[in-house]
Design a protein around this nucleic acid. Structure first.
Lengths: 226, 226
DNA sequence: CACCTGACATATTTTGCAACTTGTTATTCA
DNA sequence: TGAATAACAAGTTGCAAAATATGTCAGGTG
């Protein structure tokens, strides 16, 4: 099994590839990942399983492709939110809340499928890492926009994006969604974002937040000042 | 299996009970939880397994007792940090950082045992919940102290404690420790705490943080003002 | 009577073999 | 010659029988 091989976007994507992916995804949703066999995929398509191997080197490559397409959908969803009109703070909050809500919803309405995808991601940790990086980029972009528009002041975008990502992990990470308890998750997520973002925007007296942090005697991580 | 039964502190704790617990813990560390049998525990103690059942109704009760004692140790550790001299902010940061460091260390130096305890907690989710509640209480207490001493202003202790707990989940929750990546975790944890605590202490102009939050048009959760 | 055990009923787990899966290759088909 | 397959080796999984585990109880021992 190749370690990663993040889908080659250079691949011309033979139409049969896409058909195989879709069939595999259907079977995956219906029967779960441990009942998904290459033989079954081939049978559902009326071809020999050997033929599937003309389009995918390994079964893992099929799973990679499914994950890849699913991640692209999620990322489009997040980008859509990030591009809305409104303040950067509003959009940061919306990204976190709506992604959280969507994941919770998925978990509640079809725990089986949710668990399937969760296990799938455990098998391909690099895909998950890449996904988290994308989310980090969205945070970073929104922070940079807020800074550019004057909405935020004295923010180290890179550092702050990491803080946001880490602090919202409880509400966004697939492993946590099922463990975060059922109560009030949306308002708790909102509060986390607001408590953090509040520090970015303190409007008139600009030095306060940094001073109040300073007194903790800090070397912060990547201290390239904004 | 009883749903919870949080150790009865009223129990006189027969000395044999403690011996059984310790033997069980040793076997657990050595062989993992799936190889831990009541028969083995009894054999290691030179008694019949039936005799073990005179002291514990079920095997689950033994596991409960082990978890219980382990949690007490962790809670004492946390309490010790919380009671140190120093500002509330420093102690909040120390609690998060040192608990995080301790967990990571455990994971790194003995992943097997760590995984064992992790699985144990999945079997007893109520114990984990109780533990998280304790940590929440520590946060709450430290915030209240900071408020009382004038170090913090305009903080809703209950709400803020929840925010802190949720935001540090990535660094404290056992399920996350192994997933949070290996890079810079300590400084990232520190930043999360600082970004949040910074909002509590903005010293001279007192209304700022709240105003900057207000403009996001917010109903917060439990809005009992500080 | 307090302390413990052997023997037992009822799960749960291991075991070993048959069936199935993955991935390759030599061959067929049009 | 390109597209597909049947047949196969190597590894993995499912399954029923055998072994072990949990929890109970009537009864033995000092």
């Amino acid at each position: 099994m190749r370690p990663s091989a993040i889908t080659t976007p250079s691949a011309p994507a033979h139409p049969t590839r896409q058909v195989i992916i879709e069939t595999a995804r259907t079977l995956l949703r219906r029967f779960g990942e441990e009942k998904l066999t290459v033989v079954d995929i081939a049978r559902a398509l009326g071809m020999s399983h050997a033929n599937v191997y003309r389009f995918f080197k390994t079964k893992a490559e099929i799973l990679d492709a499914i994950i890849e397409q699913w991640l692209e959908k999620v990322e489009a969803f997040v980008d859509g939110i990030a591009r809305r009109p409104g303040s950067a703070a509003q959009r940061l909050e919306a990204v976190v809340l709506e992604l959280h809500r969507k994941r919770r919803q998925k978990l509640l309405e079809d725990a089986e499928v949710y668990a399937t995808f969760q296990r799938l991601f455990e098998l391909r940790p690099d895909a998950a890492a890449r996904h988290r990086q994308k989310l980090l980029n969205v945070f970073h972009r929104l922070l940079a926009e807020g800074l550019a528009s004057g909405e935020f002041t004295a923010v180290d975008c890179r550092e702050a994006a990491t803080v946001l990502k880490d602090a919202t992990t409880a509400f966004l990470h697939p492993l946590m969604i099922s463990a975060t308890g059922v109560e009030e998750t949306e308002s708790r997520a909102r509060n986390v974002v607001r408590y953090i973002v509040a520090g970015f925007s303190s409007p008139p007296p600009r030095a306060n937040r940094r001073d109040s942090v300073r007194h903790l005697a800090g070397r912060r991580t990547a201290s390239r000042p904004a």
